[in-house]
Computed example of a mutant assay.
Amino acid sequence: MKTVLTNKNISIRTGRGALECYIEPVLMYGCEAWTISKQTQKKLEATEMWFLRGMLRISWTAKKTNDTVLEEAHTTRLLISKIRKRQAAFFGHVMRREGLENLATTGMLEGKRSRGKQREKLIEGLTDWLKAGKSLEAIEATKDRKKWRTMIANAVKQGT
């Protein structure tokens, strides 16, 4: 795909379409179950910028800020919000279906917790993104599809 994305005869819009069609699905495979830490988020944003710089043929040694590159590409950072949207849709689906997936996703399994710093749960990352306050509010919102979709749409609009 490098020859297609870096071709000067192809417009940026077409290159962006190819990127969204062929590369992003591979990049985001299984993202519904990821827990995105700050470090992971930075790596994903860096990857997105790397693709854009490649399409625009901007060297990584060129002293251009990411904002300048985004303006040249006539776009904004979309990858993280796409991932979060997919996670929220999957989480709503799992919460409406009662079963083992529901228990595992909420982290409400019985037993001892392991020593050390606990891993971040999917629900914690989503409640921060949705600005739902507590995780119980987010879980209750999933029962009403209309309310859940509204929460997701508001979070996507805010661009967080």
Rank of each mutant, 00 (worst) to 15 (best):
V4C: 08
L5C: 02
N7Q: 03
S11P: 10
R13Q: 04
A18T: 15
L19S: 10
E20Q: 08
Y22W: 12
E24F: 15
E24L: 14
V26A: 15
M28F: 08
M28N: 05
Y29Q: 11
E32M: 11
A33S: 14
K38V: 15
T40F: 03
Q41G: 09
L44I: 02
A46S: 09
T47L: 13
W50K: 11
F51K: 01
M55D: 02
R57W: 14
S59F: 15
T61C: 06
K63W: 04
K64D: 07
T65G: 09
T65V: 02
N66A: 03
N66T: 12
N66W: 06
V69L: 09
L70T: 03
L70I: 02
L70Y: 10
E71V: 08
T75S: 05
T75L: 05
T76C: 06
L79P: 01
I80M: 14
S81P: 00
K82I: 14
K82Y: 00
I83T: 09
Q87T: 10
G92I: 04
V94Y: 06
M95W: 03
E101Q: 08
N102C: 13
M108F: 00
E110H: 04
G111R: 09
G111A: 12
R113I: 08
R115M: 03
R115K: 13
R115N: 13
K117W: 13
K121L: 08
E124N: 05
E124P: 00
A132T: 06
K134E: 10
E140F: 15
E140L: 15
A141D: 01
A141G: 01
K143D: 07
D144P: 05
D144N: 05
D144T: 04
R149I: 00
M151E: 02
N154P: 04
N154G: 07
V156L: 14
K157R: 14
K157T: 15
G159M: 10
T160R: 15
